[in-house]
């Protein structure tokens, strides 16, 4: 069976675009795990809250960029408050405790969204509405823009981690909490800051995805599951690994959909997950300890 080249190229574009949005969600998740050892089950709900905050802002101002900025800032502050009040007292305890706590937070946030905004889905108007011809399809420029923006946000954060003073604090805390604390780095505040950054990145993905599928109370569910797969495949806590894994899994799913049904194509990510856990349990991009 031969697959037309145009379909392969279209799916490559789809895989890269979806991979970058997924990478943005997964980056926040892996960062939080890397520094605090907290598996954040409420991460998808932060995506959803970001989407709603963006939708409310855009309804009031009509400005997409302002909506993106407001959503990131509001959810980052909310994330910081959430970490300080709910997760900080639980750090250092059995991992199951934080898993249950974040699962509880997820339920509370879903209920809150339903109470605050009701059952209606919301719309975020994209800032770029044109399309370009991609073989037999009209491909929207906005999808390309989301990939570029996601890459820019992740790139900016990477530069901050490499060269910024607080970025160095974060890296130090990730490498050795005791030594970082001994050197005067306020480790608990670094944790709070990282959670805020992760929440802000989740909010950004919520706003960026809003024009593609609407803002609904459930929009985070699909992201959460896929982001967890990406984080495990890329290596828990490994930022670069998560980005590569997000692109790899999205590309594999897109290519698989050319030869099998969509229901079978999405199984590809689970197959990659199982193989990773079997043969490289620390992740594809982290060396397995001997």
């Amino acid at each position: 069976m031969s697959i037309p080249l145009d379909q392969i190229l279209i799916q490559t574009v789809n895989g890269l675009v979806n991979g970058m949005i997924l990478a943005l969600v997964a980056s926040g998740l892996t960062l939080i795990f890397g520094i605090m050892d907290v598996v954040n089950f409420a991460h998808g709900d932060l995506v959803m809250l970001g989407g709603f905050t963006g939708a409310v802002t855009i309804a009031a101002t009509g400005n997409f960029w302002l909506a993106l900025l407001v959503a990131v800032l509001v959810i980052a502050v909310f994330g910081a408050a959430l970490q300080a009040t709910t997760l900080r007292p639980l750090l250092g305890r059995d991992p199951l405790t934080t898993i249950l706590a974040t699962f509880g937070i997820s339920l509370v946030l879903q209920k809150y969204a339903l109470w605050q905004w009701g059952p209606s889905a919301r719309r975020i108007q994209e800032p770029l509405t044109g399309q370009f011809q991609l073989f037999y399809l009209q491909y929207p420029w906005y999808r390309v823009l989301t990939a570029v923006l996601s890459a820019a946000i992740i790139g900016g954060f990477w530069l901050f981690l490499r060269h910024g003073k607080y970025g160095i604090w974060i890296r130090a805390t990730m490498q050795d909490r005791i030594m970082a604390s001994a050197m005067g780095i306020p480790v608990p505040w670094v944790h709070t800051g990282v959670f805020a950054i992760g929440a802000g990145m989740a909010a950004a993905s919520g706003v960026l995805f809003g024009p593609l599928g609407g803002v609904t109370q459930n929009m985070g569910l699909d992201f959460t599951l896929r982001a967890f797969i990406v984080v495990v495949v890329g290596g828990m806590g490994n930022l670069g690994g998560s980005i590569f894994a997000a692109i790899l899994i999205s590309l594999l799913e897109a290519y698989a959909s050319l030869v099998v049904s969509p229901a079978q194509a999405v199984i590809v990510s689970f197959v990659v997950l199982i193989l990773t856990l079997l043969f490289r349990p620390t992740g594809l991009f982290v060396p397995t300890p001997k």
């Binding site: 995805f209 593609l212 992201f223 799913e253 194509a265």
Partner: peptide, 12 residues
């Protein structure tokens, strides 16, 4: 069920 972004499947 639950797939939010169906573009890769619609593109085909």
């Amino acid at each position: 069920l639950g797939t939010a972004d169906m573009t890769p499947f619609l593109s085909k």
